[in-house]
Write a protein that binds this DNA or RNA. Structure first.
Lengths: 339, 339
DNA sequence: TTGTATGCGTTATCAT
DNA sequence: ATGATAACGCATACAA
């Protein structure tokens, strides 16, 4: 009992395969007599016919599939984004091929190559570094792409991201309202647009509040990780710099601070307040529950999928970029400064 | 500049496409003269030829792809498993199509259908309920499958899972060693094999330690979630039952207990100790850091991929199931009982 | 060892 | 409005 093909349907309906194809395809259905179309549809139904997407792809060079390039699915930031992407794509009749680059450029190139050879109709890329020759090349080759959470230097690509400036401004305003004035920033990697943006937004926010923008109070982390966050905070403490609050580049960096607090017997928020960024899961169960900036991840994914679908359907349309508004989630890692 | 095909390679090498095909394919390379093979390979290299997997699939009815069916990527349990699967598959020249069912049987059926129509060579399924008619049907149709973390009633399928009995035994032994004797179990859904198994393992462990197996001290959760865990613990407390420790079905259920502790002013671990299961990320940052059973997720994924590859290569081989040893991670949510 | 011929399942271009 | 034919790119049975 082999799966039925178009020929089987045509035979059962008593028409030529080409006619059956036209009848089955909503696009071309108007070309065929309404009555025969009905016959064909009934035949397909009764056989449980499912078109073979592989054969279709071979013929049409399309696939109803888009590639989703993620650095690391293990980072809790990404699964909700993926879900948002999938839900929108599914509704539009598309599928998502998810791929993990592990932050390895070689691996990424191989994976993208494999996606392209499978005729994906576009790419949603969440791995962009500021310098990203692969993306430049793909763009030159006319591959439709949408960036998530990142931008790439010198490339006008549609993108969707959280409004980081607004998020950092919320954090700083919250700390200032609590009475802090010596505020440090543990910045993300300056090789990522996010890291650069948030650091700049931090400086701007400080200036807007009439506070000194002291370069000695900003330390860069090599990665968006707990261990790098811990490293950076240790470095900062060891300089003897004075500060009562930390704006961390993201939640992982903020959690790294917790490790240092434990090491050195520092009380949070009594001695140092900390604000994170991203609203990872389970922050409310941390010790102390982490104040952070919440990002609408799921919605970002959905928006990215919509942008890509637009790009596929109207390739000439000017690239749009959308910014999603964040919100501050106040928990127990921030409080008035001790003195 | 269109992408080169096999014909281009053949033409450049001055041979027939069929010869080029044989030369390019490691399987059939021995059939062709070593010298011509070299010529073909050089031609392919110089053109940057990449075989078209779609055409190949259409011809061979294979795809070098396996489907990975996950209930919810947002559950931190699954990403490491997926990574393990991907790493092993990639090494073997296969790709993984990851798919999210959202615990919806209809969605699952549609997704599996779509995977099959793309000629996946097998399925790794992490969504199995004990009753799972879809899987039974697929099995009857000869679809190669491996189950992860679950079993299905009445189906002899290769599977890989953590040794839940051992894990629960570790938890109970730890609590008993601390001096607990009134130990409660917040069981997972009894519609899942994991839920049933852990509950049974709990009873056995209690008996093994000569402790009463009191049914009043076990409450079932409807889902593997925080809110259900909280609900179950409230229910248990409201019966007035006496106990000094809780073995939770998984970490989420354990974290649900934390919410109830906060609500009712219960001190953990002073008044009640809690042990989780799974070793989700960031448990060490919780309040209090959660004692739990660690599962080698990444290795489980890798093992599942290996089992599936075995099944694909030796379809007649008897289904093996492998159990991975868990370990106990002792943190601050467990302590000697107060009195 | 290599070439010839054919077909995987579908759709696009003709012709009728 | 429908049918005939070819082609997408590749692999394989068969012939030479």
């Amino acid at each position: 009992m082999t799966t039925p093909t178009l020929r089987d349907v045509a035979q059962l309906a008593g028409v030529h395969p080409a006619t059956a194809s036209r009848a089955l395809n909503p696009q071309t259905r108007p070309l065929v007599n309404a009555e025969t179309a009905r016959k064909v549809l009934r035949a397909a139904e009764s056989l449980g016919y499912q078109p073979n997407p592989i054969a279709r792809s071979l013929k049409t060079a399309r696939s109803s599939t888009v590639g989703v390039v993620i650095p690391d699915l293990t980072n809790p930031l990404f699964p909700p984004i993926v879900r948002g992407i999938e839900d929108v794509l599914t509704t539009a009749g598309y599928n998502a091929w998810i791929v993990n680059t592990d932050n390895d450029a070689g691996r990424e190139e191989a994976l993208v190559e494999s996606l392209r050879s499978r005729q994906v109709e576009g790419l949603i890329v969440a791995t962009a570094r500021r310098e990203h020759p692969l993306l430049v090349r793909l763009h030159d080759q006319g591959v439709r792409m949408v960036l998530v959470n990142r931008k790439v230097d010198g490339l006008e690509l549609p993108s969707v991201a959280a409004d980081d400036d607004a998020g950092v401004a919320l954090s700083v305003a919250h700390l200032v309202a609590l009475g802090h004035s010596r505020i440090a920033h543990l910045a993300g990697p300056q090789g990522t647009s996010t890291g650069v943006n948030r650091a700049r937004a931090f400086r701007h926010a400080m200036i807007d509040h009439g506070l000194p923008d002291d370069p000695a109070l900003t330390v860069e982390c090599g990665y968006w990780s707990e261990s790098e966050g811990a490293l950076a905070l240790r470095k900062l403490l060891d300089t003897g710099a004075e500060f009562t609050a930390v704006v961390a580049g993201n939640d992982l960096i903020a959690l790294g601070c917790y490790d240092v607090f434990a090491e050195r017997g520092i009380e949070c928020p009594l001695q140092i307040s900390v604000v994170g960024f991203n609203e990872m899961p389970f922050l409310d169960k941390m010790r102390p529950p982490l104040t952070t900036v919440a990002i609408p991840h799921y919605e970002i994914g959905g928006e990215a999928a919509r942008l890509l679908l637009d790009t596929i359907e109207e390739p000439e349309r000017h690239p749009r970029s959308v910014l999603m508004a964040p919100s501050l989630v106040v928990r127990a890692s921030t409080a008035r400064p001790a003195r």
